[in-house]
């Protein structure tokens, strides 16, 4: 099955669960549509200079979305989408 990766780099709105000292995205709004996150595949922290970004790979159905929270500008971003088929 072919895989397609689309670079997006657009700001998004994210509803996240911040309990237990962890930030777990639950759903996000991109354009007119709200995407409910089924699972967080992986997460990592990218430190650059004084600032940092919390990155997540999240699963919405068969699609994988890379999102991140940039602490410097306090903004969530949708980085890329991985589509199957």
């Amino acid at each position: 099955m072919a895989m397609k990766i689309e670079e997006i780099s657009e700001p998004i709105r994210v509803l996240a669960d911040c309990t237990g000292g962890k930030v777990t995205p639950v759903r996000f709004r991109w354009g007119p549509r709200t995407y409910v996150i089924d699972a967080v595949n992986g997460q990592w922290t990218d430190r650059s200079g004084d600032t940092y970004a919390l990155h997540y790979s999240v699963q919405v159905g068969d699609e994988t979305y890379y999102i991140h929270f940039a602490a410097g500008d306090v903004q969530w971003w949708l980085d890329r989408v991985v589509l199957e088929g």
């Binding site: 099955m1 895989m3 699972a39 595949n41 992986g42 790979s57 699963q59 068969d62 994988t64 890379y66 991985v82 199957e84």
Partner: peptide
């Protein structure tokens, strides 16, 4: 391994 972790279909 990282790619397979981040993209379950892999």
């Amino acid at each position: 391994s990282i790619e397979q972790l981040l993209i379950p279909s892999l």
